[in-house]
C-alpha cells in the first residue's frame, strides 16, 4: 500500500497555507511533519484525510484494494479533539467507534490495556484528565483496523511514560505494515522516519530529508 501526494496545495479561508508538497510513503513507513506553529501542519493532515478540500495537486492511495478504495476509508484521523462524548463512559465511547467504524481490531478492554488505562472503562469520559483523554483517543486507533494513521500532535498532554507507550504502538503499527503521517514538534523516537519540514510562507518552502 502506498500513499502518494503530488504537488499538494492547501488553503484556509482563501489564503494559501502550503503548496507543492510531494511525498510518497509505503507500508511500514512513517512521515513526520514538523515546522513552526502556523506553518500548515494541521491543514496538511486535514487535506490528506479529505476533511478539507485541497486547492491543488493530488493525493491518492495505491494498492488499497476493494476494502480501502479511498484515503479516507483507509485512515484513522486523530485531531486536536478527541471525538469522545463526556457524558458516556470510556467503554461506551470506544465500543461505539468500534461498531460504527467497522473492521474491528482489538477488543475495547485490550485497547485500554495497551494505553495503560484498563481501570477507567466504566468512568464517564468527562471525568478523565487531559492526558488520559488523549490516551483513550489513541486507544480508538486500536479498536478499528486502518492501515493509515493520520496523527495531529498525538503526544499533546501525554506524560513521558505515555509518550513512550505511544511510540511503541506506532512502531508496532508500522511493523504490521501500516502507514503513519504524524504532525509533531516532539521527537517520537520512531526509527527510520522520514521528515517533512513545513516552513512559514508557501511556495516550495518544503523540503524532505531522510531521518
Amino acid at each position: 500500500m502506498r500513499l502518494i501526494a503530488e504537488k499538494l496545495g492547501g488553503e484556509r479561508g482563501g489564503q494559501p497555507v502550503f503548496s507543492d508538497i510531494d511525498f510518497s510513503i509505503d507500508s511500514g513507513e512513517c512521515l513526520m511533519v514538523t515546522g513552526p506553529n502556523g506553518s500548515g501542519k494541521s491543514t496538511l493532515l486535514r487535506v490528506i484525510a479529505g476533511l478539507l478540500q485541497r486547492s491543488d495537486g493530488e493525493i491518492r492511495l495505491e494498492g488499497g484494494g476493494e476494502e480501502f478504495p479511498s484515503v479516507a476509508s483507509a485512515s484513522h484521523y486523530l485531531g486536536h479533539l478527541n471525538g469522545m462524548k463526556p457524558a458516556m463512559t470510556v467503554g461506551e465511547n470506544l465500543a461505539f467507534w468500534q461498531d460504527f467504524g467497522g473492521a474491528p481490531g482489538m477488543e475495547v478492554g485490550e485497547a485500554l490495556e495497551a494505553v495503560g488505562l484498563e481501570t477507567v472503562g466504566h468512568l464517564p469520559f468527562g471525568y478523565l484528565s487531559t492526558g488520559q483523554r488523549r490516551r483513550i483517543s489513541i486507544a480508538r486507533l486500536l479498536v478499528n483496523l486502518r492501515p493509515i494513521w493520520i496523527l495531529d500532535e498525538p503526544s499533546a498532554g501525554l506524560d513521558r511514560e505515555s509518550e513512550r507507550r505511544l511510540s511503541a504502538l506506532m512502531s508496532a503499527h508500522l511493523g504490521d505494515g501500516g502507514l503513519i503521517v504524524a504532525a509533531t514538534h516532539l521527537p517520537l523516537g520512531i526509527e527510520g522516519a522520514a521528515t517533512l519540514t513545513m516552513n512559514e510562507g508557501d511556495e516550495g518552502a518544503t523540503e524532505r530529508e531522510a531521518g
Binding site: L81, G83, M84, P86, W97, F100, G102
Partner: peptide, 16 residues
Amino acid sequence: RDDGSLDLLILAGDRH
C-alpha cells in the same frame, strides 16, 4: 463538532 466526532463521522463517509 465541538468534540471532534463530526470529523470522524464525515471521514467514515465511504462506509456509511
